[in-house]
Nucleic acid binder design. Structure first.
Lengths: 247, 247
DNA sequence: GCCAGACATTAACATAGGTAAAGGTTGCTG
DNA sequence: CAGCAACCTTTACCTATGTTAATGTCTGGC
């Protein structure tokens, strides 16, 4: 459950003790807490920090002039928001807390320091940002090509596997704080249809979703429904499953 | 028309003569040509280079097991495909030529050299990759929230403005090589509906599209239909319109 | 122990967009 | 210059999903 970022990065590369200490130190420098639904940064503001979500779920979202809202990405424990953002003059979207959230702010200086002294971390962070881009692309495919049932199944598979990589699952279950409204804003469908779709997945015994807890009794089966191919998550370091060196 | 990459980067920052010479030199190192419809790199391959599209249009796409295809991004002249890709073990999608295309391959060594000796270029390239990510996010919004007419209008606005930044427009017109099938694969709609939607835009005098040429007589009007907010393209360098120093 | 607010569920009905199929251009190629 | 291939257009019909609105079920606060 601890240090989800480190746990995740180790899916890509082995980190030295010094690397890990560095990451822990950086993450401790400036910590902020947000209530559920609170904005962490809002469209139009100048980005000054890289945010690292260390506890809770956050999301990127964008609102159209007429009020329609689209959730563009989820940030799970261990996820970083945009390396290098400070290059941009202003945010073109907002980041909000989905649940109560703990965020570490990484300053430009701290980031540069890490880039210079810790090539392993640097590599690992680029990997994480390439994966984030790949996820965004997969969401494009999801919204463009899959129908409601496939789309929902795909999202659930992705979130479950990402939570697993961050050490936030136990057995076949994980906490699942999203409301049906939020699922609709993510998948581009009405709440009514979200509900119908979840009912259908439940009826097929593909998921159990109750009391903010999601259980996927047979992940393979859900993946099949979703046409889910995990390659885009790039979690395939040779032998990463052999490492038992959790900290 | 020349050096679309330089032209585009100068929307973000001023480049020195040495910077520009560097970019020209790098782009000349290894050049490849592809016929329309040919793959530049295919899902599953190991990425070894950063590709720079210097002439023609290319696209990223992904195909589901059952054959459905989604176009995920367009690469216009001056666009780069994924800084740092070589970190990944294999491509999770393909990149294909839409028209006949000229591509410069940038090796890891050349990229590193540039990063070290040319901080202005480094900054500018990160900017360009952040913009590419922002575009991908906007496509998520487009597919998730906008209806067919808005979606089509939005895509046309974006492509036109990006072509303008690369110096590939004249007055209110640009070359527009996409078939209706490709538009459908981009916007997640059937060709029949693409056709209906284009008819509707034509009937409202919002576009003229004929003989692979697109004219947008009143860009503002098209943007209004699309709920198009150009902020995500981050083309707003203070005073960039004052620079008359084209090379 | 009751009420308000947030969330989930269901039903009845409406519509944007998909599907299938046929015909119309245009432009190349032999 | 005939004929094919790629692309565009249109029509008729169908269905996945949206809309509206009513009802149900929790939860925390008083």
């Amino acid at each position: 459950m601890k240090r989800p970022l480190i746990r995740k990065l180790e899916k890509f590369t082995r980190l030295s003790r010094a690397d890990k200490e560095m990451l822990v130190r950086i993450a401790a420098q400036r910590i902020r807490r947000f209530a559920a639904r609170e904005d962490i940064i809002h469209e139009g503001e100048k980005p000054e920090f890289i945010n690292l979500v260390s506890e809770g779920w956050a999301c990127r979202y964008k609102t159209l002039e007429d009020g329609r809202r689209q959730i563009i990405a989820f940030f799970l424990p261990g996820d970083l928001c945009d390396l290098n953002v400070f290059i941009l003059k202003e945010m073109d979207h907002s980041i909000g807390a989905v649940t109560p959230v703990v965020v570490s702010e990484i300053s430009r200086a701290a980031f540069d320091e890490m880039m210079i002294g810790h090539p392993r971390i640097t590599q690992a962070l680029w990997w994480e940002s390439l994966v984030a881009a790949a996820i965004q692309r997969e969401w494009t495919v999801n919204l463009g090509q899959r129908d409601a049932l496939e789309r929902m199944a795909h999202l659930l598979c992705e979130l479950f596997i990402r939570l697993e990589a961050a050490g936030c699952t136990s057995d076949h279950s994980c906490e699942f704080p999203l409301t049906q409204t939020e699922l609709g804003e993510t998948l581009g469908m009405s709440t009514v249809h979200v509900n119908r779709t979840l009912q259908e997945l439940r009826a097929s015994n593909l998921i159990v979703l109750k009391d903010r807890t999601l259980t996927i009794p047979n992940l393979k089966a859900l993946q099949d429904i979703a046409l889910f191919n995990p390659n885009y998550l790039h979690l395939d370091r040779e032998g990463s499953h052999l490492d038992a060196n959790e900290e």
